[in-house]
């Protein structure tokens, strides 16, 4: 179980782009009539990715209105699943696996190395807003231990050298404002 404290609504206007909105309506059609709530998880993934990296109360209220459900139904789901961020995060969210198989293959040292290198603790974001480190449980890639994900992209058989190179690459990507991520909204069609 994860404990979360929700933020208060600021009554900011949030909205998907018309293109994304069209896709979301198509997504809702994947479920039987009247079961639009089923689309909540995929819609939250899309919302988090396209509208700021985390789920503010305003954003969750907006999603509740889109799916015609109560706000609380969104809050309780958003705080249950570990992939949803309730607090703001950096541009690159680094999820380091620390569960059994990764741990016995050096996962704990990888987490320590990252924390030292970025000078932050798990759950924190670097002051430049680039990196957030999370210690997460099993990512289902134990054969490639130790592993981590950067914005859900896998990085496997990690070493400190690999991390050095990766962080440099990510900084470069941020400088050039490149977005290499494949979008959630494109995954379901």
């Amino acid at each position: 179980m994860i404990g979360h404290k929700l933020h208060k609504p600021e009554n900011k206007i949030v909205a998907f782009s018309p293109e994304t909105l069209e896709k979301i309506h198509e997504l809702i059609s994947h479920y039987p009539d009247g079961q639009q709530k089923s689309a909540l998880l995929p819609v939250l993934h899309i919302a988090q990715e396209e509208l700021g990296g985390f789920l503010s109360a305003d954003l969750m209220d907006y999603i509740a209105s889109l799916l015609n459900i109560q706000s609380i139904e969104v809050y309780e789901v958003a705080t249950f699943y570990s992939m949803f961020n309730i607090d703001p995060v950096g541009k690159f969210v680094i999820d380091v696996c620390r569960t059994g198989p990764c741990a016995i293959c050096g996962g704990e040292q990888i987490l320590d190395y990252l924390k030292k290198k970025l000078n932050i603790n798990e759950g924190e974001t670097t002051p430049d807003g680039l990196f957030t480190i999370n210690a997460v449980e099993c990512l289902g890639a134990c054969g490639a231990a130790p592993v981590m994900q950067v914005n859900t992209e896998f990085h496997e058989f990690l070493t400190s050298e690999k991390i050095d190179i990766l962080l440099d690459n990510l900084r470069e990507m941020a400088n050039e404002k490149k977005v290499s991520q494949s979008r959630w909204v494109e995954k379901f069609f």
């Binding site: 699943y81 949803f84 379901f188």
Partner: peptide, 12 residues
């Protein structure tokens, strides 16, 4: 038959 993919969100 229709097949749809549905994502979880990190819950064992």
């Amino acid at each position: 038959l229709d097949i749809f993919v549905h994502p979880g969100a990190g819950a064992y």
